[in-house]
Design a binder for these strands. Structure first.
Lengths: 336, 336
DNA sequence: TTGACTTACGAAAACGATTAAGGCAGAGGA
DNA sequence: TCCTCTGCCTTAATCGTTTTCGTAAGTCAA
């Protein structure tokens, strides 16, 4: 590896001058700067990130913690898309993305320790168990943190607008399509789930509709099998719903199977709606009615905000940014 | 941050002794080692990765280049699952995973330069355009490299057994299910595609079956729309196929839609098969006949091999490891 | 000519760790 | 008693940068 020392020898100036020339400091002559830059390019010089990090305490590296409760890892379309967008924006700002892990082989480190070890300038938390003590420790440390879809006190959070999302979805189904008997199979307990569920009840109430207890089922995200069972239960009620909302688009597939297994068709006999707006929802027939979360914007904002927290810590205050979703009016809900 | 210096002061030994004690060198007394370790724990010491990397030239960081031609990013189930497995194994061996990117904002670096800048010990390449000059440069550099599903001369490659995969698939459809008119919509040109296509022709030939030119269509991976169009073309042939093999499970969905749009049913009127064995293939009704690629093993092996190349460069030779897939006998192919 | 500034650069310390080489005390042998 | 080993620890150099402080030369007004 060619270092600044090599350049300094060739140009005939000190290492300090090389450093300052390459970093465009004002106390170096323009001709010297030009010469240094040229030789650096000739010799194929690139800085050594470790040395720079060691000295400056800035790694230009952002750690991400991406793993959902169910262990879907990256095979979770929503988070995968967010990560993709996050990565793109972070990279455009000169930051690299690394995964944070705990439990290193030899050395037992928790999340926070791992971050310090690697010197991550900041971290983005998503798709994890936010009640995990290691996660809480990280979130309450002095490391810049941005969370996605979860709010920690005094930390910046990017949250998908689940309240409005469910409201729009329900209003569409109720007002535009005329359904009155709407069931909701929700996901496992989390702040996202609580928001969606509360919004579901509130919207129904505002619309003057009643929600029988047996219309609200405790399902799981991305678990079609569970959706299948619960859908069967719903369909076998004395007074079955005419439309079922699922935890997410993928989980809805279980519902679709259940409905078909009963010899019923979508949307003629039963209507369904999902959530997320992942690719599969736009491809399956009938096209799913769902709320498409703006993954691009969520990832982009997360990157913007973490960089801001890193680079201008004084001016950056903990924000709570809500990202609107978009109602996709597919064909899976019948207009009554 | 508490450093070795802090520990050395507290214990009353030199920094060198602390370093050697923590690294369990043999020339430090057992009592001293114990004392150092204890104080280190008390003070919450963790090593500084940058300093260590700077000195030892080992970052314990593996770079990954994961991006497919179509820009699916991580929302590609197959690669997402591979990445997940890769990450798990690498982490268990004490390595972290970072993304390699080119085109950093201020400083224009290519992949190789970026790797050197960050000091990645090795890199794993997957899901990218292997003909890209930057990728080739990286693959032919002296950085340890493992590729997935592509072979570079003299580099270790983990490849999914596409030849056997297609053969098993075709033999199942032909022999066990009795189909004779089998069409294949293949993906975009790549070594994977060429292997699959060649295996398709060879297997059909061995079985004594003829493959009309119009039964082989140039489709795209993960593009249901394209599959839709091509499926329509196939169905409208004078002598349409009884079974259609798609580029992958996801692309097959377009085919399913096309078949249904024609008022036909699967598998009674037309049989279909996919490739990959991603979750959706196991969830959709009818369950897809497909080849499940062993993503867990592929990722695991890639991690094993790159670590081996890094840690024992002398003994490690360029290998070509073939990972078998598994035929999933769903219900999407009718037994004639 | 002198003193005060400005401009352009260099010397050296520092970041936190690793490691080769060397020192020193006590044990053991001749 | 002297010498040689061991065992245990220290000194000091080093990795590649950044940054503070210093200084020499040049500029300019008085």
């Amino acid at each position: 590896m060619v270092s600044m020392k090599d350049i300094s020898k060739k140009v005939g100036v000190s290492v300090a001058t090389v450093s300052k020339a390459l970093n465009d400091h004002s106390d170096i002559g323009e001709t010297t700067k030009e010469r240094v830059r040229q030789v650096a390019k000739e010799m194929g010089y690139f800085p050594n990130a470790s040395a720079r990090t060691l000295k400056t305490n800035k790694s230009h590296n952002i750690g991400v913690l991406f793993r959902d409760e169910a262990g879907n890892g990256f095979t979770h379309d929503f988070y995968a898309a967010v990560l993709d967008s996050l990565k793109k924006t972070a990279e455009s700002k000169g930051y690299d993305i690394s995964f944070i892990n705990s439990d290193r082989a030899a050395m037992h480190m928790n999340y926070l320790e791992h971050c310090r070890y690697r010197g991550y300038d900041g971290v983005v938390l998503a798709c994890i168990d936010f009640s995990d003590s290691g996660v809480v420790e990280l979130a309450t440390s002095n490391v810049p943190v941005v969370t996605i879809d979860h709010i920690f006190d005094n930390r910046t959070a990017i949250i998908s607008d689940n309240v409005t999302g469910i409201r729009e979805l329900v209003e569409y189904i109720y007002k535009e399509c005329g359904h009155r008997k709407i069931a909701y199979i929700h996901g496992a307990d989390s702040s996202v789930t609580r928001n969606r569920l509360a919004s579901f009840y509130k919207t129904m109430e505002e619309l003057g509709a009643t929600v029988p207890d047996e219309y609200v089922k405790d399902g799981r995200y991305r678990k079609p099998d569970m959706s299948y069972e619960l859908t069967i239960e719903l369909l076998e009620l004395d007074d079955p719903p005419t439309c079922i909302i699922y935890p997410d688009d993928f989980a809805a597939i279980g519902g679709i199977n259940a409905i078909k297994s009963k010899g019923l068709s979508i949307p003629d006999d039963v209507s369904i709606a999902g959530y997320d707006g992942i690719r599969i929802a736009k491809v399956l027939e009938p096209k799913m009615v769902t709320i498409e979360q703006d993954t691009g914007k969520i990832g982009d904002l997360a990157a913007q905000k973490i960089v801001q927290l890193i680079e201008r810590p004084r001016s950056a205050i903990a924000e709570r940014i809500v990202v609107e979703g978009k109602l996709l009016k597919g064909d899976s809900v019948k207009k009554l």
